[in-house]
Design a protein around this nucleic acid. Sequence first.
RNA 1: GCGGGAGUGGCGGAAUGGAAGACGCGCUGGCUUUAGGUGCCAGUGCCUUCGGGCGUGCGGGUUCAAGUCCCGCCUCCCGCACCA
Length: 872
Amino acid sequence: MTDGAHPHDPSPRDALTHDAQAREAATREAATREAATHDAATYDAATHDAATHDAATYDVVAVQDKWLPVWDEMAPFRSGEQGDDRPKRYILDMFPYPSGDLHMGHAEAYALGDVVARYGVQQGFDVMHPIGWDSFGLPAENAAIARGVDPRTWTYENIAVQRESMRRYACSFDWDRVLHTSDPEYYRWNQWLFLLLFERGLAYRKPSLVNWCPHDQTVLANEQVVGGLCERCDTPVTKKKLTQWYFKITDYADRLLDDMAQLEGQWPQKVLTMQRNWIGRSVGADVTFVIEGRDKPVTVYTTRPDTLYGATFFVVAADSDLAAELAAGGPAQAEFTTYVEKVRGESDIDRLSSDRDKTGVFLHRYAVNPVNGQRLQIWAADYVLADYGHGAIMAVPAHDQRDLDFARTFGLPVVTVVDTGAEDPATSGVATTGDGAMVNSGSLDGLGKAAAIERITGDLEDRGLGRAAVNYRLRDWLISRQRYWGTPIPIIHCPACGEVAVPAEQLPVELPPAEGLDLRPKGSSPLGAAEDWVNVACPRCGGAARRDTDTMDTFVDSSWYFLRFVSPRRDDVAFDRALVDQWLPVEQYVGGVTHAILHLLYARFVTKVLHDLGLVGFTEPFRRLLNQGMVIMGGSAMSKSRGNVVRLSDELAIHGVDAVRLTMVFAGPPEDDVDWADLSAHGSARFLARAWRLSGDVDSPPGADVTAGDPVLRKATHRALDEVGRAVETFRFNVAVARVMELVNAARKAIDSGCGPADPAVREAAETVAVMLSLFAPFTAEEMWSRLGHQPCVARAGWPAVDPTLLVQDSVTAVVQVAGKVRAKLTVSPSIGEDELRELALASDGVLRALDGRAVRTVIVRAPRLVNVVPG
RNA sequence: GCGGGAGUGGCGGAAUGGAAGACGCGCUGGCUUUAGGUGCCAGUGCCUUCGGGCGUGCGGGUUCAAGUCCCGCCUCCCGCACCA
């Protein structure tokens, strides 16, 4: 396994050697023939074998095989070494799940991350670009169940395969920092983190409704519910009430929201918006209603306290405790029970269907409107959610569509209290939510919305009946899973002492061997059956107690892994504070938009908790975020059922690593989806061979003085350096590649029909191409560098300094327009004066012809680029 | 429904308010050479009476000048979706 041979991934070399001998003669013959002319080089990865590579033949496979061991030896991307005084920069790619070999999506993501990391190195930074594996979790466990093997075996075998693939893909990772979240050395600190939160009341247990698959008899994570169906068996998912562990992320809702100001412009707008919506802060008021026949009043939350006079009924969430209590013993008891059962059994699919009919049960109880004493019928309905606000609402049908739909279904009264000028909701069926003058609202009459809200909120507060309030859509983070392959929750349940933390010196609580355990999902954790493991003495009283048998959501593992990378081998602390201070926050985070909410929100939350405990000195973990798009094929996501899966290993075998990487980077803006069908890895390969050929054509010694070199080519070289640098810094990688291509074309032209191969400017251009290509096509770059007479690694060669004097043009083209249309082009000095340019323009043939005798009204001059002549 | 983003050649895509289509793919022709591929050169938005005209989803507007800015639509993609 360690050498990368894997049943899923036949090595490209193997595929090639079969017919190698048969091709050898033909290849050698062709090579001899081609060597006769300087430009007849070939590039054909699929039909080459290493034995016959020739000076004029770019043998991709041979080049890959040549440099990998050299790089292994040199470890050019090792970071944070003693005495390294380069400034530090932390570039992070989201770490993978070890599910099978790397696929096209990984190929894109890691190619992009590599551009950023390698550019940092060339710019002289000590770049930390670590990698690890998010190796706990359901994919491994399910695969292990399906194959009847230990999840450990499956996981670590896959890691070995992926690791070797990353090596061959020439990812610029610091291999000394590798971590796996399923190692006890890692998850020990997961448990430490859990206890940190537990001791501060930020980790707690509560009963709540969770996703439940009736077929598999298991709790499902939100991510496992796809379109309302269980992702594995396609059974409609329902809800079940279970006691689960939560992290109190809601305590941080405001800060998660407010701190986004730091990320504005640095993170994709889309992600910030998604997080904002997910947190969903809304501002309104709590209002207290007396319930007839109940001692304690009930509070509701509303964003429209101004419409209080329009409340005509009252609704409680059908599945809430309050509803059950209000129904108990009443005339609607039986009807209510039936209704709740129906609601509970309802699948998400039903709940998701839009414009479904409103349902509910009148409980024959009444609430009293605090402002006018009106008796309001209390209904139980499923359109009110138990876990938002207070699980009960005042219904204002005139000004809320949902309430109006409900009122019309059950014939409840509609009272308009805001005159918006629109048709009466009672007759139109359309609730009016806009602004307008208050009516039927006592002292509020005549006020506008904002004023009315302020007035009524103040009044309610004065009378002790309510107050301004804020609510969030964000719910606490459910972190427990009834599964085997995860971090055991370090809690011991003692009949006498309750929930007791496992003492720090007893960490890690290691996962018991899977052998003998039934891992199949059954609604409770498989760990419950590991009797020797479960039964322990209570750390507090010494009495018989049981371990918590749940494991943690893997999002806990990934919520802090970026901290572990600074000191992955430390066994006394989760992370070295001094090193964290040196390296973090992460300068650039690269990963898929799939994690726009969950992972990124959790990581932000945990960072803030650690900050509050004085363990880190910052509040946001990731300064900049780049979300790459997906790799699709023929217009849709790759899937086996569609039969459009492109195998990365196949593409690498056909085109070579560099060509695949370059294709990914050149395809378009990194955040856009790339359709592999629209792209040409073959074209990329052709370009790389063209670039490589330059290095063989150069006919001047290394270190030749370039100052006397061809100024035209030198200018092209320095312009490329300048523009590629800026394009990379702004993530316009596709443009950066285009600029490198332009330089290659310019150098080709200089060699063939310009200054010739002996001019040192050609060497300068070729060397610059090699350095720039080291970001995108490391093998080709290294090979060029070597052929140009340099020692490896080109990746550490350093970005050449741009000579600003070479960015200045000798002459520029001035565009001359008449009435905005281009009529002439003048070649002028870049320092031409406005008056001189105006003269030249007015005297040009194109202008005279276009004016055709007409008078000139105005002349706009923007020297040296543009003149616009406006006729009278 | 709410929120976000995007509409540019045959295709992927370029373009600080100042030459629309960089770079590449594909295609056409030529040269070299050949079994084929590779390589090199030229061309390639549409129309044209060869002067030029028209072109960045549609309709307006601002400006000497709009793919770019403003207003109103249309279409597509993504996210959230009974959150009171």
